[in-house]
Design a protein around this nucleic acid. Structure first.
Lengths: 245, 245
DNA sequence: CTGTTAAGTGTATTTTTAACACTTTGTTTG
DNA sequence: CAAACAAAGTGTTAAAAATACACTTAACAG
């Protein structure tokens, strides 16, 4: 079914997850050992990406890459930008790595950036010998390749999108409280929101529907649970331009 | 200097221009004649695009492509989306065309979409045997390849960008009137705006600066001329999210 | 000097945003 | 079982922004 990899084109995926505290990204450790001594030459972190197959479209490649790492399907996948700087893989570490592990591929690679949104950090990561972990976006410093830049572009696209479309619910459980929803908006947008004003605004969103159910297992007053109805959203959305804030 | 073309990667450019009436796009006629009889097999319109060179980055390719057609440099260039559907060049007409004129290149091409903004339709188009013309975006029906889709994506990106960033001035002359500016916003956004409310809003934009100069050669009350100051804009912009409307 | 054309201007109303603090409810602990 | 704890839940007022709306002015053309 799958045929050749296109040697000049890859897809890089930024996998976002929200843990009711902060916005996180799934990163893969890249550790290079000296061929003989087994000393570590360098160790850093990368997003996840892969070249695309000749008979695979871009969305399909992004799906495959996310599925390869998380086992999940049907996630939101959003293409946000493409990266083709000549020096994007030219750091010595990157060159070493590519020579060793991707020798057959090209050093000139244009990468199409996608991000996907996960409803939880509790995912069975397919390690496949890799070390894969969640990192809060605010605590990430330098990534390998040009992945710091790619991540920044992804975050700003996500922020934009979150304001104008109901995309945040993809990072919440199907039943969520308003405080959780507020924390999500605060974490992604990087702002503090007023509880009463937030709730006033949400109460006008007919597609955020209260359930006959309350939070359980918490040691305080349990909160009302809500769900997002895409159905209602599609039917009530007008040609508004600002979704939120 | 320039080396090989990458056979799987191209850049397609949507060149927008504003003529104080409507938003226009520069399109190239594509006419295919039967090899012997010289009858026209088909004739349609395309955006302008080209494969990228191995040692050329994406922005550079976009610049080259726009310059090849218009001779202009230093235009605003904005990457808006990438297109990699498997069937994007699979229409029989497209296949015929590619076989004849781009035989050496691949049928599987991922194209990076850019748009650029021109301050006028008065451009010396480098015809090079091509027929190149401006078309109002509202009057464009079917384009070749997947270019209708690409154009739609470009327009919606431009609309978004126009609301939040002072990008419209790129399509106005250096000295412009408020009516011209209003018409630009109306043409791009596809809405009608109230003159007084529009002016009230613009008067708060300190970076739209009145000049000591009036319109000349019009047969009615001449309008005050204004200029856009990027300088002032950069210094006064805050972390606002909505630029306009 | 009259007609034509687009420029230019202000106010009142509605809507939206922003700021702000106490009470309620269920759980835990002593 | 009473008290302490923790987060849920709730309204009002003031300021700012958006909207709707119609007449006067300046230059040119005939």
């Amino acid at each position: 079914m799958e045929t050749n990899l296109l040697k000049n084109i890859s897809v890089d995926c930024v996998i976002f997850g929200f843990d009711m505290e902060s916005l996180n990204v799934l990163l893969v450790e890249r550790t290079m050992n000296a061929s003989q001594s087994n000393d570590t030459l360098f160790s850093d972190l990368t997003l996840t990406g892969h070249h695309i197959y000749e008979n695979e479209d871009l969305d399909g490649a992004a799906k495959r890459i996310v599925n390869d790492l998380t086992g999940l399907k049907n996630l939101v996948l959003e293409q946000f930008y493409s990266f083709g700087e000549l020096d994007r893989l030219q750091h010595p570490n990157d060159q070493l790595w590519i020579d060793q592990f991707e020798g057959a591929l090209d050093k000139r690679v244009v990468s199409i950036g996608y991000y996907s949104l996960l409803p939880s950090l509790n995912v069975n990561i397919k390690q496949k010998g890799r070390v894969v972990k969640w990192y809060p976006v605010n605590e990430i410093s330098e990534l390998a390749y040009d992945h710091t830049f790619i991540l920044e572009k992804a975050i700003s696209h996500l922020r934009y999108k979150l304001r104008y479309e109901p995309i945040g619910f993809e990072m919440l459980p199907p039943k969520f409280t308003l405080s959780q929803m507020q924390k999500l908006y605060e974490a992604v947008l990087g702002v503090e929101l007023d509880k009463r004003n937030f709730r006033k605004k949400v109460s006008q969103m007919t597609y955020v529907v209260p359930l006959n159910e309350k939070q359980k297992g918490v040691s305080h007053k349990p909160a009302q649970l809500f769900m997002f109805s895409r159905d209602v959203y599609e039917k009530t959305k007008t040609e508004r331009y600002d979704f939120f804030v």
